[in-house]
């Protein structure tokens, strides 16, 4: 289990290479995590906090909302890239739901490295898996100040 930690120092764009792996991020999935994310993102749909309601909708349990998914993708990127990284673009597609007790592992890798004036641009692809399959697949763009 990896403890949440503050992002390390911002990575140096000059050292980033296509194919670099982003350090994996593991989420221990509990009802509390799902409810905390839904409410902090101001999404009060009962399927994200009420198991009985989710059952009525045909789901076996409450499941994570998409605003939490984009939040965790952002954290996954900046935990790696550091506090001076800027998330400029994030596009995700949802697959299997994220239920309690089905832990999720985020992985990703660098697909392109470019320079635009005094900014370094890094393109990544990312994926979040649980034991049911692919929960999230997506791509993102971050920028780094050049130094």
């Amino acid at each position: 289990m990896n403890e949440p930690t503050a992002p390390r120092a911002t990575i140096d764009w000059h050292t980033v290479r296509v194919g670099d792996a982003i350090p994996p991020m593991v989420l221990i999935m509990s009802p509390t995590r799902i409810v905390a994310g839904a409410i902090a993102s101001r999404d009060f749909m009962p399927v994200h906090h009420d198991r009985a309601y989710a059952n009525q909708q045909g789901a076996p349990n409450m499941f994570m909302n998409i605003l939490s998914d984009t939040a965790y993708c952002s954290r996954f990127l900046t935990d790696w890239a550091g506090p001076d990284a800027m998330v400029k673009r994030l596009a995700i597609r949802l697959g299997v739901p994220a239920f309690p007790n089905h832990d999720i592992t985020y992985t990703g890798k660098v697909t392109a490295v470019e320079r635009d004036g005094d900014e370094g641009i890094v393109e990544v692809e990312l994926q979040a898996l649980n034991d049911l399959g692919e929960h999230v697949s997506g791509t993102a763009t971050i920028t780094l100040p050049l130094r």
Partner: peptide, 13 residues
Amino acid sequence: RHWAAAFEDWNPV
């Protein structure tokens, strides 16, 4: 602060 705690995102900015 509420959002950052919910997602355990400790980015200092």
